[in-house]
Design a protein around this nucleic acid. Sequence first.
RNA 1: GCGAGAGUGGUGGAAUGGUAGACACGCUAGAUUUAGGAUCUAGUGCCCUAACCGGGCGUGCGGGUUCAAAUCCCGCCUCUCGCACCA
Length: 813
Amino acid sequence: MSEVSVKRDYDPGIIESRWQRRWAESGLYKTDEDPAKPKHYALTMLPYPSGDLHVGHWYAMTPSDTRARFMRMRGYRVFFPIGFDAFGLPAENAAIKRGIHPRKWTYSNIENMRGQLRQMGTMFDFDSEVVTCEPEYYRWNQWFFLKFFEKGLAYRAEVPVDWCPNDQTTLAREQVIGPNRVCERCGTPVIRKNLRQWLFKITDYADELLDFSKIEWPERVKTLQTNWIGRSEGAEIEFDVPGYGPIEVFTTRPDTLFGATFFVMAPEHPAVEKITTPEQQAEVKSYVEKAARMSEIDRTDVTREKTGVFTGAYATNPANGESIPIYVADYVLMGYGTGAIMAVPAHDERDFEFARQYGIEIRPVIAPPDWKGGEFEEAYTGEGTMINSGRFDGTPSDEGREKVTAWLEERGKGRHAVSYRLRDWLISRQRYWGTPIPIIYCEKCGTVPVPEEDLPVLLPEDAEFTPTGESPLKLDPDFYNTTCPRCGGPATRETDTMDTFMDSSWYQYRYLSPHYDEGPFDTERGGKWLPVDQYTGGVEHAVMHLLYTRFFTKVMRDLGLVDFDEPMRRLFNQGEILGPDGNRMSKSKGNVVNPQEFVDRYGADVLRCFLMFIGPWNEGGPWDGKGIEGVARFLRRAHTLVTGGGPSGAEADPAEIERRTNRTIRKITQDIENFRFNTAIASLMEHTNYLLAVRGRVGEGEWREALRSFVLILAPFAPHHAEEMWAEMGLSYSVHLQEWPQWNEDLVAEEEITLVVQVNGRLRDRIQAPADIAEEDARELALASPKVRPHVEGKEIRKSIYVPGRLVNLVVK
RNA sequence: GCGAGAGUGGUGGAAUGGUAGACACGCUAGAUUUAGGAUCUAGUGCCCUAACCGGGCGUGCGGGUUCAAAUCCCGCCUCUCGCACCA
């Protein structure tokens, strides 16, 4: 068979779609439920149906698929589902722009992407597909909301919230990104508003969320979540303000209490107005107003000089009875602790800076080790010995923290306290395309949850959804006006919809029984598959989706729905594939790479393998399509192994073929286990090159055996090619139902090795030697080398190091 | 400022104490071809040498440990990401 006809033989357009059809017809990827096999739930993050699958989807999904296929061949029953995160803003924005309904836009995208997902050649179980904008799905969002409400985990409160002026909705704290505080979706800087909103009490689970002992997740994600939760331990201390009453502060350093020489309140603190003396009223008022006008970005700019205003009032330090001045300053934030602090300039950098500026006493109360007395040039924040602290003088500061707290507690002036940076999860959104919050407001009965049997509260199809800043559902009288389920009187519905992160917090459970209508999922089936064994997705969701879904699972456990604590046992973060210009791919930058043209030209297998080959999966990087030719060549050459000339002789060493095959099986197995797809492909290439080199010089039996193993280990990477080759070898359908080949460690070992000879650590020669050569023999061999001799002649050999099977290093002088 | 990750040929990358640059891209030469493409063969870190034989240098920079360092330790530089007045 000539090379030309071989080339025509593998036409990806024909061959790939033919196998895809056959796979679908034969139900090859229907989930294997065989209870005798160990289970493996592999999950890739729920994609948003944005229109077309872009190369980023391929990058995220196909290596996951490769690993799922591998697990299946290794004897696991594998559940590998897919679905669509179908609610959310882009649908609405597109709908507004094009004048079509968000549902229509979303479904046509889903339709489109379903076809493209099949083109990828994945083993997704499409029967388990979940579409989150379906009433049969969001009904259970509402059900969860009701359960949360019953448990006191869902509540409504007027809170300062982040508002995106572009998307015209509130955002959760996690969805405000970076120092510039921009919207996670659109990049617009957010503004502050006070609104009555629904929140989930994720803070109740803060401590448990800090415990990662039951999961194998990347350190990076665990650190991000830990920092996000921001637990700090300390004390709440009451400072009395004569004529007003006690005001509480939170501090992590109660041991420095005696050094508090002033007191600061956040401009938003509700007591500010009440404690301010008449003479200071005007100045304080103008400062507070200025702070309110200032943007969040300016307000939190750390390089800015500290500013503040004296209120005229004084607070009493409960430790020593001293009166200290109360300031209003914007470096104290209302959103953390109690919104008021005791300022200890000697031992806090910010307080130090402020005290210098306003000429306030800086009194050391913790003596640094080796301190000789004298003024502080900067705040000392480390540990030391307590001084100027009355009865506590001489106490080490770390001990002092507990002792001072206990002392305050005895006198009813303070207590041990823990503070978190984590805020409750704000779930209200003032947009149309989301899950209606199942709450009814009745004048007589107040806030009434929609009874479970009335779910789902359907999202009206014909609402006017152009954003106005108000919830669109408010403008739909048929939706808005209702009757109270309790008293039957006139009532109105909650018109906000839920954050779409609600949908993705529990979708992995719904996949198990997407049409189940007696609960969010069939718990019996859950017992057979849960929890997720291997999750893969981008790190950008570390403190959003990945925190929310852990929270959800813990609540679900407390509701008795699951009997474990963590949703996903293992997590792997793949990197992000960037545009050719090194920037994130986006339509506006015009740097989006469309996978379709590569699929058309080379086929899905080539694109899959190329994406796995370009580098370590966790690193991502800019797209550079040039190297794809190399992968195309590799698969073409691999294919010619079965179509090209067969065995015609037996000159090649059969042991060598066996050894190489075993070694490659071992390498590929270990690489897939460790997500090192790039080196796996490299060794497949190497093995292909070797097999091509010995083709025609191999006995029939060895050749077939070598090819069989090769096709099996190729199968997870290039499923179409492998299937085609398998069929061409006359083997029975399907390669994907075969068992993963075993390697034999004894057959991997080399009989002969390249012995490296160094003199004083410098490479001088390489000598072929038996693998089990003894030290003396190796040294003798080395000394006999004509390349080595000039470097050792006339010199004393002081030492020789022998690394068995690798090298000899002669140390001479 | 704090925390994490990274820095290796023209390019993507491999090697986690023992042959630096596997595997590819690209490039050069040759074969095949009317030509181009495709394919095949050989070469390809840099420098000295006409070439060979040799040799030297080389993993961001500087030092150290070791028979031996891209890899371990100390100090610095650069880039990327995250957090950032959190009391």
